[in-house]
Amino acid sequence: MAETAYWEAIRRAHDEEMARDPMVIAMGEDIGVAGGTYKATSGLFDKYGEKRIIDCPISENSYTGIGIGASMVGMRPVIEIMSINFALLALDTIVNAAAKIRYMSGGQIECPIVMRTPGGTAHQLAAQHSARLARMFMSTSGLRVVTPRGPLDAYGMLKSAIRSNDPVVIIEHEQMYNLKEDIPDEEFFRPLEGAEVIREGSDITLIGYNYSVHLCMQAAERLAKDGISAEVVDLRSLKPIDRETIRKSVEKTHKVVVAEEDEAPVGVGSEIITGIMEDCFFALDSQPVRIHAADVPVPYNAKLEKAAIPNADDVYQGALKAMGKI
């Protein structure tokens, strides 16, 4: 086991997969000579050269499309899109091409491409660098969408994504790249499907994904001091969603809070709570609670930004509400 930062875990997965399979390449802005905005490919340009660590011009839609085209003939490109805000520019090739080519071709052609991008707020990056947008990708048939919460999943899910034959969107988070965790030295894989109970509890279920999992964990610790046993579920995969794990937890605790960093309308929380209504409505003892961002473009001002984005206290308060304590 070695303590590994999130970015190091991604880098290691790239390195191992590129060493194993010459069809694996990486593409993105500043990922090569400059070493990568998040260092996720640092040092790999020198090791694998410019044909496999490809510095792209600032042309998100078309370099993603080029990666998709390459994947159609057997390459395994890993595309880094510097911010999920910029992934909006590549929506045409991601949603209209990568997600649909297998189906439109009657299963003849697959697009085994991985698109990594951080989606979340950091510190005063303002409206055009703070989008989350997981909801946009999770609503698209033909994509897989995963949200590694830490180095273990960041490494293990990227390796799985590279080997999977489907287009996979991996949503990372600017505030998680330096997060550290002990991960095994030997090679391992973490599957792309399946939610995970990362803290067992009996009184209430807190559901999160990506960064909001950490808010749920912090809230759970605080709730424990109040004598409330919270179970925390990391969704891990937003498409498909593991409804079975959610149902089992809600049937155990009978109360639920869903925490997302994005705005609420048509969001992850809406989808998860709808699933709970359909799957285990009668198991609920209280109304489900959604924790989410304010319905505003993310403000620059630090205090306004803080007010717009949910934190661990919001999750804690939400849990108290679901428990009928406030």
Partner: peptide, 9 residues
């Protein structure tokens, strides 16, 4: 871009 990707492959 898809064509350019095919060519890259």
């Amino acid at each position: 871009p898809l064509a350019a990707g095919l060519a890259m492959g």
